[in-house]
């Protein structure tokens, strides 16, 4: 690490806010925390006496659990709030909730929300550090960072790699964070999916839009697939998951076009037989569970770093 570096971010709203140096520092910090989870007694006192609130306006199993485990392994006190957006009219609930939570003096609020920008709004109303655990189709920075960490572990570097991201780019906050993160670290991100799921202007944000699945995957170091939903809010995106699996899913034959040492990733949960053929999902090149393991380490690092800066 370069001398004189310090982590200066009060909130973590997106990978967009991080420089290359920031990302390297976060990944190094996460790497140093990873060993804690392998101990028989998986607890360090680092965040003892700190209050962390998981404020989830969208259902989540693994991200919420991952943040909670990360916090508890660092001895923080954690509280989970599963709020509903269905009762939210015009946002008063988010702001009211924010003010009420803030009045109880938490140190960190981790928010997931179906609306892009909700963490930004929250950060204007609370004194606590805000960590975005996924907002709409905007960003999911901790997922992007754990993807970077997983690739770094397996490839030993992040620059000069070819990353193929396949699937629903348009609605995926993971894809957005990954595109920003990997390109910032010097990799090339090639994306491919049905045209209904490739958003306007994504090429101007650093991604290379591939003309075919084969071109996207050919010689890739990483093949990342994204979860598919057939329809969203009456928007007819795909005729069927069956056709998606045939035309856009990753089979063994398609994966064979990638580099022999390519790794297969997925942010989960996987629709088996849709985005990934089961034998690919469970095959030797899959590092999906490593992603989950690294998620805890990355989130420990983020909690530690935002507290170090408060």
């Amino acid at each position: 690490m370069a001398t004189g570096y310090s982590f200066l971010h009060r909130h973590i709203l997106g990978i967009e806010q991080f420089s290359r140096e920031d990302i390297s520092h976060i990944l190094a910090t996460a790497d140093s925390f990873k060993e804690i989870s392998a101990r028989p007694i998986k607890k360090v006192p680092t965040l003892r006496g700190h209050t962390i609130i998981n404020l989830f306006f969208e259902p989540s199993t693994r991200t919420r659990l991952s943040f909670e485990i990360a916090a508890k392994r660092m001895s923080a006190d954690t509280f989970n709030i599963a709020a509903s957006t269905s009762s939210t009219t015009k946002g008063e609930t988010l702001i009211d909730t924010a003010r009420n939570i803030s009045a109880m003096h938490p140190d960190i609020i981790i928010i997931r929300h179906s609306y892009s920008g909700a963490p930004h709004l929250l950060s204007r109303y609370v004194k606590a550090a805000v960590i975005n655990a996924g907002d709409g189709a905007h960003e999911h920075p901790s997922q992007g960072l754990l993807d970077l960490m997983t690739v770094l572990e397996h490839k030993g570097r992040l620059d000069g790699l070819k990353i193929a991201i396949i699937g629903d780019i348009a609605h995926s906050r993971v894809a957005h964070s990954d595109i920003i993160g990997f390109t910032r670290m010097g990799s090339e991100v090639h994306i491919y999916g049905p045209s209904t799921l490739v958003p306007k202007g994504i090429d101007q944000l650093g991604a290379i839009v591939s003309p075919s699945l084969e071109e996207a995957v050919r010689d890739a170091d990483v093949v990342m697939t994204l979860r598919i939903q057939r329809e969203r809010q009456n928007d007819p995106l795909l005729p069927s998951l069956r056709e998606y699996a045939q035309r856009f899913g990753i089979s063994r034959e398609i994966l064979a076009l990638a580099r022999p040492d390519a790794v297969v990733m997925h942010p989960g949960p996987v629709n088996r037989g849709v985005e990934l053929n089961p034998e690919v999902a469970d095959g030797p090149q899959s590092v999906i569970l490593d992603q989950v393991t690294n998620g805890v380490a990355v989130r420990m690092a983020l909690l530690y770093l935002v507290m170090g800066n408060s």
Binding site: G136, A137, H138, R173, H176, K200, Q233
Partner: peptide, 18 residues
């Protein structure tokens, strides 16, 4: 017109429906 802002690079960047 089911989105909330102009559809283009900025809507994609912000994750808002265009």
């Amino acid at each position: 017109a089911s989105g909330v802002m102009n559809e283009g690079v900025v809507s994609t960047q912000l994750g808002l429906k265009g």
